[in-house]
């Protein structure tokens, strides 16, 4: 049995560093998810409006997000906008901007889907009872849509965490970058470290995302 380099992880603070790297990625995704949910709710409500211009704008926005790889958006924001506007944008902010831009579109579409799945008669009945537009949303529509949305938003968290692995490409030191550093630093003493370390990174992502997606699946089954 050749040395697969798992032991490298237990030298010094290596494993803690790896977890720190994972946290860097997870933190960016949690911040982006929070922004996405907040703005996505607003956007989803706006998307159900009948205004033609608003509809067209959202349609284009959604298509852009659907078609462009997140990595391209990251490059545009991190390398492109800094060049055009000359501002100083940290990689982490660039990542949060891009993932929120993506998440708001995704979330908005989910909210829109949930809203239009509520039968029209509910709006009409609420109106017949004399409720205002805002009241109808707050007391009738939102409570029903939120239940539908919770599993979908939890799913968005796992997708966000998986996608934030891309941030290493704009120079953020996250788990893969830390893994590379550990492997490089131990190249002489443990030439096979790449196997052990990358296998552990693989498993770490699984351990983080799997329970979250199971939870989403469970809630979806329970509440549907």
């Amino acid at each position: 049995m050749p040395n697969l380099g798992i032991d490298v992880l237990f030298k010094g603070k290596n494993f803690l560093r790896l977890l720190g790297g994972l946290w860097a990625a997870v933190r960016i995704s949690l911040i982006s998810v929070a922004i996405s949910i907040a703005l996505g709710l607003v956007m989803g409500m706006l998307m159900t409006s009948q205004n033609k211009i608003l509809k067209a704008v959202f349609r284009v926005y959604l298509e852009v997000v659907r078609i462009m790889p997140q990595l391209v958006l990251l490059f545009i924001v991190y390398f492109g906008t800094t060049r055009v506007f000359g501002w100083d944008l940290s990689a982490e902010y660039a990542a949060i901007i891009v993932f929120s831009f993506w998440g708001v579109a995704e979330m908005g579409d989910l909210v829109r889907g949930a809203l239009i799945s509520i039968p029209k008669i509910q709006y009409e009945s609420a109106q017949a009872l004399g409720m205002t537009g805002l009241q109808i949303y707050l007391y009738v529509i939102l409570p029903q849509t939120i239940r539908r949305l919770i599993p979908l938003s939890i799913n968005l968290i796992t997708r966000m965490i998986k996608t934030t692995s891309l941030v290493m490409m704009i120079g953020i030191v996250e788990v893969l970058k830390v893994a590379q550093q550990i492997i490089e630093a131990n190249r002489r003493t443990s030439p096979n470290a790449a196997f052990g370390v990358f296998a552990v990174v693989f498993l770490l992502y699984f351990i983080v995302c799997w329970p979250i997606s199971r939870l989403a699946a469970y809630l979806e089954r329970r509440w549907s």
Partner: peptide
């Protein structure tokens, strides 16, 4: 299915490309 749906492609590629040659 669970393993590959819950990990990013980037990590999968790193494993296939950098880790597998070691074995």
């Amino acid at each position: 299915i669970e393993l590959f749906r819950n990990t990013p492609l980037l990590v999968q590629l790193f494993f296939l490309y950098f880790a597998l040659p070691k074995v």
